[in-house]
Write a protein that binds this DNA or RNA. Sequence first.
DNA 1: CCACGGATTGGCT
DNA 2: GCCAATCCGTGGA
Length: 209
Amino acid sequence: MPPDSRHSNFKKLQKKFYERYVLNVAPDLLGKIFVRRIGNIILSGRIVETEAYDGKIDAAAHSYNGKTIRNAVMFEGTGLLYVYFTYGMHYCANVVSGGRDQGQAVLIRGIEPIDGITHLSNNRFGNIMLSNKQHLNLTNGPAKICKAFNITKEQNGIDLTGNSIYILDADLPPNSVIIKTTRIGIKKSVDLPWRFYIKDNPFVSKKSG
DNA sequence: CCACGGATTGGCT
DNA sequence: GCCAATCCGTGGA
């Protein structure tokens, strides 16, 4: 059973965690608990899949060609939430790392739901949980996560050390095996092994890669 | 199970 | 004007 963040003593990750290089932050986010508070409602889940992007050396990063309106948050500080809009209909959420003006971020690609599952389901499908198939399809992809957690451009730039969206420290489940492989859905820097996930977790978006 | 293409907006060239 | 750090439905093996 995953932990219930409402009843845990887990501590919120602080600036020091996010300040490190993105290739350290991305795998270290695996197992941590992503939390969104909306009034009295708590939505949460364990992070099971991430990807690193480093604009200094990585042509696939949005920050690769410098700061623009869209990617500005990637340059504006450590531990911020960078939310971008893509394919005309989807949002994806990232954690800014490394420090100001570094252009580094970790894309959150897979989450195992913990708290507020009926709310996550209502946000995602427009009704409460119906089937096991829907349960597994809730947050196993970056845009699915934003849909379920109701994250849009409104949340772009939120400080993750605040009280609305944050990440709790937590240990990996026992016997977890971390897979390091290539990233998904990009056309540049395709060979960099900058994707990380927990082996055999059902909320990883894709097994191979 | 796998491959393919449509949806649909806004950022950037 | 091009096309994206995606998702989902369809159609064939």
